[in-house]
Design a protein around this nucleic acid. Sequence first.
DNA 1: CCATCTGGGTTTCGTATCGAAACTCAGAGA
DNA 2: TCTCTGAGTTTCGATACGAAACCCAGATGG
Lengths: 169, 169
Amino acid sequence: MAGTIDRTRYASDNCSVGRTLAVVGERWTFLVLREAFYGQRRFEDIQSTLGVARNVLAARLQTLVEHGLLVRRPYREPGKRERFEYRLTDRGTDLFPALVALMEWGDKHLPDEAGPPVALEHRDCGARLHVELVCEAGHRGDGALGGLTARDATPVPGPGARLRDDATA
Amino acid sequence: MAGTIDRTRYASDNCSVGRTLAVVGERWTFLVLREAFYGQRRFEDIQSTLGVARNVLAARLQTLVEHGLLVRRPYREPGKRERFEYRLTDRGTDLFPALVALMEWGDKHLPDEAGPPVALEHRDCGARLHVELVCEAGHRGDGALGGLTARDATPVPGPGARLRDDATA
DNA sequence: CCATCTGGGTTTCGTATCGAAACTCAGAGA
DNA sequence: TCTCTGAGTTTCGATACGAAACCCAGATGG
């Protein structure tokens, strides 16, 4: 894994991690998405369970809508006036593996004495779900589930890699 | 996936996602870790490739060391004085799947016209690596690689789940 | 043995973001 | 008409961030 993206040659400012974090890297964004994954859709519900400041929540919801991770859509309960709720789009649900990866790291390295507060079950069979690094060729690693680790990975410059302005020829 | 953690009953402040983000959720932290995964170890190198302010980099490195994701260790090049470098610990490399998940989301949803700037290869066989949601029972999904999606996942309260203070009996 | 260079930071100070609490707004119900 | 409610917006003090200057210690050169 080490040393395989030569930073004396390749720029770092067009990285997909950086671009992703520009969208979801602010303080409360992932927690808002977590609540969305748990089915929370309304401003008041998210605000009260999360305890986030209302102006900050408004700002986060707005940028998530702008970037297409949530859609703001009207709803109306009987006898109530029309209001708005926020629902995950496919773009939003695609971030689920990242959220689960963060959760699993916390479960392992910052454990609550009582155990994990949330577990993920396969809807169809009830077994536990995990995030894993897998090889397209189907090779398995040493992990409990056969997942690979960072030590099995070699990052290589892809087609979108750009040279640094000051790269030596 | 929807509505399965009842937030009128369960507290949100002991979530593993939240605890993880308290450690790695600040602005530059993931980018510092990314450079660490690419083999960068020295303050000057990280600072110049990332363009982060030096005081902020110093602060991020310090909290990553405090939380055990990096170790600060001395090194000495011949004819130079002793200096320090930062190396990933196992605790740090365990965050690799989260980083890859963020990268893959960016590759898919915020693509560079030229393609991904970085690809991951399996060190042993050269095939591409990906992050996937997998079922412990081995069930496969519809994805290209058989990975599951958020829609296959049901979050359920785990042993560490705590009731809200104001939860109704 | 004095000056300079270098890696790895710390200080200072101005700007941007966050958090808490108060305020707004519109439509439903009494 | 008065009040309630969900969904925000405004205001203002407290943090965090960014740029640039400064510092420190041990090579290295003259």
